[in-house]
């Protein structure tokens, strides 16, 4: 049945392919501008490296972080809020598959579609126009990390959506949290560029494992050997990422049980 759910949502994504295709114009354009900005900064300062990043490293960081963002993006909080607000959430309680699982299947289908229609054309454009900035990275650990980030991201946004069981209208709050998560995950710039105190605070949160850590794995910033200590290895980062993912799932299960008990739709 779960495979059929995947197929249905894949077909739904096909119907709105124009919306996805906007990325093919927008993302490379954003990159052209980023290249101009950072080339000017590196050029003016006659610096080869800023906070451990060469210009190529930084441009690759922005490129890979955009791909990771497209791959793990989800808006489950909006769907959940809408269903609760309209009272339609009641229907999900009658279905044989519960809401979190159904939405998770939907996200997998949509993200596979996004990878095909957004990431692949953008990658071709990058290879054509930004070849000199591209740094070939370590794909294996990176893909595992993105997979875990996908699950963590889904659970985080599901938790945000669950707030609607108590607050009903969470649209604006979700905007603020979404911005904060994108910032803390390193989507806008590598977290090492932040003042050390802020970087230290963010390192205790799970958000950096959504984008910053996977991208740095790609860039080979973590070693695969144990010469510089276990904490600097890719294995340690994956372990912590898995641990956060597990904690988030447990927490989401706990909140979901409380939320379901609290929900009362019209006529329920």
């Amino acid at each position: 049945m779960k495979l059929n759910i995947l197929k249905t949502y894949w077909k739904e994504s096909l119907a709105y392919r124009a919306e996805y295709l906007i990325s093919v114009f927008v993302v490379p354009m954003r990159f052209f501008i980023l290249v101009f900005i950072w080339s000017a900064v590196y050029g003016a300062n006659q610096a080869d490296v800023i906070q451990g990043y060469t210009l190529s490293n930084l441009i690759t960081y922005f490129m890979i972080s955009t791909f990771v963002f497209i791959a793990i993006f989800n808006d489950v909080e909006k769907t959940l809020e809408k269903e609760i607000k309209k009272g339609d959430f009641l229907i999900y309680l009658l279905k044989p598959v519960n809401f979190p699982v159904l939405e998770f299947m939907k996200k997998i289908a949509r993200r596979f579609f996004a990878i095909l229609i957004e990431i692949l054309p953008i990658m071709i454009i990058f290879i054509l126009f930004f070849k000199e900035y591209l740094v070939m990275g370590k794909i294996g650990f990176f893909l595992i990390s993105v997979g875990i980030a996908f699950v963590s991201s889904y659970v985080i946004y599901l938790l945000i959506g669950m707030m609607a069981f108590w607050l009903i209208n969470i649209r604006s709050l979700a905007w603020i949290l979404d911005f904060a998560i994108q910032f803390a995950s390193g989507l806008f710039f590598p977290l090492n560029l932040l003042p050390p105190t802020i970087e230290k605070i963010l390192s205790f949160l799970p958000f950096k494992y959504l984008i910053f850590v996977p991208v740095n794995m790609y860039l080979g910033k973590y070693s695969t050997g144990f010469e510089s200590g276990f904490t600097n290895t890719v294995y340690f980062q994956l372990l912590i990422q898995l641990l956060w993912c597990f904690i988030l799932i447990l927490f989401a299960c706990f909140v979901w049980k409380k939320a379901i008990r609290r929900f009362s739709g019209v006529g329920a």
Binding site: I37, A40, N45, I50
Partner: peptide
């Protein structure tokens, strides 16, 4: 971020 890490534009 740009001015914190460099001389800027």
């Amino acid at each position: 971020i740009i001015y914190f890490n460099s001389e800027g534009f």
